[in-house]
Design a protein around this nucleic acid. Structure first.
Lengths: 327, 327
DNA sequence: CTGAAAGCGCTTACAG
DNA sequence: CTGAAAGCGCTTACAG
């Protein structure tokens, strides 16, 4: 392997082209103040040498890094979100930098990666660490924060691209009722307080009595599912179940098959969370899908708007879920 | 929202501490040449103002950015790999930057994100765009490349942290034979040439005749699976099937259940690819799991080694898969 | 113990 | 049309 050479700079091109570094800079900006001939020569040289402007140097000089920080966790849904965000934020004069949240640091902005993003002088931070509250960090007046996927906080001065979780639950319950279900139960293995509240309210709005299947904290999934399925020995078992999250609903589906409870014949399963694999596996679970693409689109737009008009009033957008019927 | 203020610099701290910018710099480096009292004062100020050194400025001056580029695609397995890599490469003086490959650009180093990584002056690139050949880019003498997950290329001057795909196939076939299977078929919906070759060789090594289930390019999954399962009407159906990849194996499992073919009673399924969800779904498919954590560990070590000793001879490591038995 | 200065690679004035 | 110079925020000499 040849000895490492240092990166190509404008000065190096200038030396080869017999002109000043400044002329190279202008030529590469496409300035018409430089003669077409010289420009062509310099462009050819730059291409041949594989010149790439240093973002550090240009960012330092211009006072803006051209970087946008993303911060969140790479679970299934947020990997999709992060990918969509990175595609949308990656342009000629702007690059996304992904920082990972690993173990749900609280408050979110104290994560080590957030420090890194600030050391890189990102011009805005898109946070999708939505297992946490949308705590506004002290530096938010210097580096704006766009909260994506959090529950909206109307008091906050930051931008919000939110998902209507309660509305999603309502949509799910409405769907089940419209399909004739009257005994609808909710099943999960962790509190899921907000969703549970929304579930109760939605069921009551149809004049029905909500039922939330109890679990003991720490009880393993199999045990909960076994107790849940025991209900099907009696006549008043639920005809539909709202499960949180979809991964658990898949486990329920598998357990139901083993216990000869037919899905959807005996039990209709509706679950909260997008899980792309269901389609190829032909698992008949209807899901409430997070609007991942729309979240990314709106967050990218919010970034652009915030950079363009730093003083604009905080933007609050709330996006609906998609009911993804599978049977 | 208050007007955006510019980031805190050493100069700003110096003005407040009534000393020179240089003194601030030395104090923040913990230099003992600065009096303890002054150092404490400056550290307090820096913390209070939320000072973070600009990586662009320090990188520019020191001639090294402190950044390591990662480049690949975020599919299920590589999301795990990327996460493990980012954890291991994120240190006080080194930060990983993730560039995404979206649609399998060929050769890999012509992707737009690779340009961005080079503009950021990453000190090394870890490529896991392993759907492509390990093409060595022209700038590899300037910025070293660590190929991770590719088939090793003994002629290459770059570092390789490879996975032993052929060995994995052999291990899978050996396992099936050890379980008493004699009629083992391979099933997939795309050529998978290398794996298919390894499969044939492994089966022959046991004195058995390999059988690869044919498919028509473009035929949909359901149709292939239906034809495959038709074999179970006759007596000489395979007792075990080697499926590529695991996602397809899950589809086969679901289709088998619908057709009353018992898994693993009538058919043992072995699949190529790590898929964490199988455990919670209790899908009885034995898998050949990519050594994701070991890949990340070794790649991170290769980066450290390459930065420390740029002229070291190319390193080639090959890691084995894990046979993950489920029944 | 502290400060003045040079320079990393750019961009943006300003001068000719 | 081209060049010399200043300066972004650091680090690393060098001077006192």
């Amino acid at each position: 392997m040849s000895p490492r050479s240092s990166p190509v700079t404008q000065a190096r091109i200038a030396a080869l082209a017999n002109c000043s570094q400044n002329t190279v800079a202008l030529a590469l900006q496409g300035s018409t103040r430089i003669s077409a001939k010289r420009r062509a020569q310099i462009e050819r040289l730059a291409a041949k040498l594989g010149y790439r402007p240093s973002m550090a140097a240009s960012g330092l000089r211009r006072g803006r890094s051209g970087l946008i920080g993303l911060y969140g966790r790479l679970d299934i849904i947020r990997t999709l979100l992060a990918t969509e965000l990175m595609v949308r934020l990656h342009g000629p004069s702007q690059k996304p930098i992904l920082g990972l949240e690993l173990e749900g640091v609280r408050p979110w902005h104290t994560g080590a990666w957030v420090d890194t993003l600030l050391a890189l002088r990102v011009e805005a931070v898109v946070s999708f660490a939505w297992n946490d509250e949308p705590t506004v960090p002290p530096w938010a007046s210097r580096t704006p924060v766009i909260f994506t996927g959090y529950d909206p906080d109307p008091r906050s001065v930051c931008d919000f691209v939110a998902m209507d979780r309660a509305g999603a639950v309502r949509m799910g319950v409405d769907y089940l009722v419209s399909q004739g279900h009257r005994r609808i139960q909710m099943l999960r293995y962790y509190p899921g307080k907000r969703i549970a509240d929304a579930f109760e309210q939605a069921v009551r709005s149809h004049g029905l009595e909500p039922s939330i299947f109890p679990y003991k904290p720490g009880e393993d999934h199999e045990a909960i599912l076994s107790r849940f399925l025991d209900q099907f020995r009696t006549a008043d078992a639920p005809t539909a179940v709202f499960v949180l999250p979809t991964g658990f609903a898949c486990e329920l589906h598998a357990a139901a098959i083993r216990r000869a409870v037919r899905v959807p014949g005996d039990l209709t399963i509706l679950a909260y969370d997008l899980t792309p694999a269901l389609d190829s596996l032909r698992i008949p679970i209807t899901t409430l899908d997070q609007p991942v693409v729309e979240l990314a689109e709106n967050a990218a737009a919010a970034v652009a708007r915030r950079l363009q008009t730093p003083g604009a009033p905080p933007m609050h957008v709330t996006l609906g879920f998609r009911l993804n019927v599978r049977q």
